[in-house]
Design a binder for these strands. Sequence first.
DNA 1: CCTAATCTCTTCCTAAAGGAAGAGAACTCA
DNA 2: TGAGTTCTCTTCCTTTAGGAAGAGATTAGG
Lengths: 152, 152
Amino acid sequence: MSTSAMPSSAMPSDASAIYRRYLSAVLLHGHAGARAVGLGATDLYALNILDLTGPMTPGELGERTGLTTGPTTRLVDRLEKAGYVRRAADPHDRRKVIVEPLDRPAGLDGALDPARRRIGEILGGYTPEQLSVLFDYFTRAAEAYREAAEEL
Amino acid sequence: MSTSAMPSSAMPSDASAIYRRYLSAVLLHGHAGARAVGLGATDLYALNILDLTGPMTPGELGERTGLTTGPTTRLVDRLEKAGYVRRAADPHDRRKVIVEPLDRPAGLDGALDPARRRIGEILGGYTPEQLSVLFDYFTRAAEAYREAAEEL
DNA sequence: CCTAATCTCTTCCTAAAGGAAGAGAACTCA
DNA sequence: TGAGTTCTCTTCCTTTAGGAAGAGATTAGG
């Protein structure tokens, strides 16, 4: 209870608990959404990587997911078949393949819609000044989490 | 591209992209953290459920995770062995078991520490007014995600 | 009390994901 | 141009998670 890394001066006294509940809810929802459309854990992981980093080769994707080449090929197969990515040719090296994330098609997007609607309503209740604070946080936090994930 | 549910009036023009990157980063980090301490996807899912809802019987946990009784028993076995939960007796019904989440022991907590440090630094840069906006959002969004997850 | 229902756990089986090893194509560089 | 390297993909094997069925214990209700 006393080990919080957050400075307590300007935070709610239960800041740590609130934030933790918030994170749990986000993760829970992400997992439930993926499961709802038949997406495996690794598949979702890979999609998030592609979303954050952009197109990359199967080799790099395998490196980032920690998979060897065999499972990586099949991972891309699954994602491509489900319509989440496409394989494109590398114009400079014909051995390589470029895995490009596609705009989320029906499946996952539909599953995440109820949450998006709710969050949209919540955000709609803030003033422009408050919104700029929130989006400033979203931007910084995204970078922080991306870096922290890379560290692992 | 034009189907965003967010009112565009007071948001950054790329609000949807920012928010999506943010969510991807959170999920990515959660997954990477779990993987780093050898926690399976379902195990993490169950931990988040217990975190949000509190102690419950294996039956209820199985219901929420979508598992049948066999895998549920082994799920609790794994979590208990890793020190994340304990099995307690139900005082009113000796057939039942109550699965209680424990304070995160060394493993997962350590893996999530770098992120907590970074987020702590970011939050430390805001004024008290800005922080109250952020924590207001965290509280509301947690509830929204919890509801949306339940819907799935 | 005695039967039926409920709850967890055990056992066995199936399915899916990941590792290992190697093949085939293409690039690099001497 | 030829040898070595670097890609992706294929094949086979192992591991792990999840489903099915049923046992054992306990509670509830007639």
